[in-house]
Amino acid sequence: MKSVVIRLALAAVVGIVASAASAQTLNTIKTRGSINCGSNGTLAGFGLPDSQGRWTGLDVDFCKALAAAIFNDPSKAKFVPLTAKDRFTALQSGEVDLLARNTTWTSSRDTSLGMNFTAINYFDGQGFMVRKALKVNSALELGDAAVCVQQGTTTELNLADYFRANKMKLKTVTFATSTEAVKAYDAGRCDAYTTDASGLAGERLRLANVNDHVILPEVISKEPLGPAVRHGDDQWFDIVKWTHYAMVNAEEFGITQANVDDQKKSDNPDIKRLLGTEGKHGEALGLPDDWAYRIIKHVGNYGESFERNVGQGSPLKIARGLNGLWNKGGLQFAPPVR
């Protein structure tokens, strides 16, 4: 009996660690018939299931785009909700195929956590939300304030850095999930709540009295958010990276969900290459040549996804800003398909 228990325990350990090393992610996904996508689950605009269990959000759309490229069916994306604290372990252990969970790209995460960031699908920065009644106009006035923050985030570190750099005293109250942190802030446990600016816009809508709270103007950090994959599978890394670039390129060429079928008849060589009517650009990725067509047909281009989830078509109403195309004053720039 004892040996059975030990053997099972060991098998579990070995199994968990062994699966992390498999290099054939695409084949595994095809065999399984679905993509396991590490998602947020509680953040409006990025990853949140609605009352019918339908997931929506920018990161959710990204996974649907991947499922469209591989299976020609966005419903083949399965979403695994992860807390900020557990997300890296879930990716390392192979529980999810990729992490599309508003995760900040940093050097230490890229190098020592056994994962690679593929592209940046949202340029963000950390901000603060406070009660209007406090009459605080700047984050620099927050010395001695109690700040609620979510555990296991770059936010937690930036917060400490910012207060240290500005020689202000800080009282941090750390919670495992953003839900708990926001609830404590709403109950008056903290003077301020801090997270990425996009997250603040989403969380503010969940508070009891939205108009009692104000987001401070300071953005105290760079938060490039993007999907990440495990080390050791370059093919899968390329697929994830080019899924984002395909969506950005599509926006640049004016290809939308509505006109993609007409665009297939276009004479523009860039569009022909992207939609797979010329050249064999999907084959090299291990995908059909119309992979990008499938993405746009089922999910739309980057701009459409942005506006639908966080932009003007959503309750968040976030402006494109840094996330606009490179030729429209933003930072979204995709290498060409050729």
């Binding site: 350990v13 660690v17 062994a18 090393a21 570190l157 207060f163 800080l170 941090t172 080390h231």
Partner: peptide
């Protein structure tokens, strides 16, 4: 197996992190 796979996935191992700066409050 764990050590080998951690090395292959280039995940940092060992207890060197113990003396690194924590950076959180």
């Amino acid at each position: 197996n764990a050590a080998e796979n951690l090395a292959r996935a280039k995940i940092a191992t060992g207890f060197g992190f113990w003396d690194n700066t924590a950076g959180f409050d």
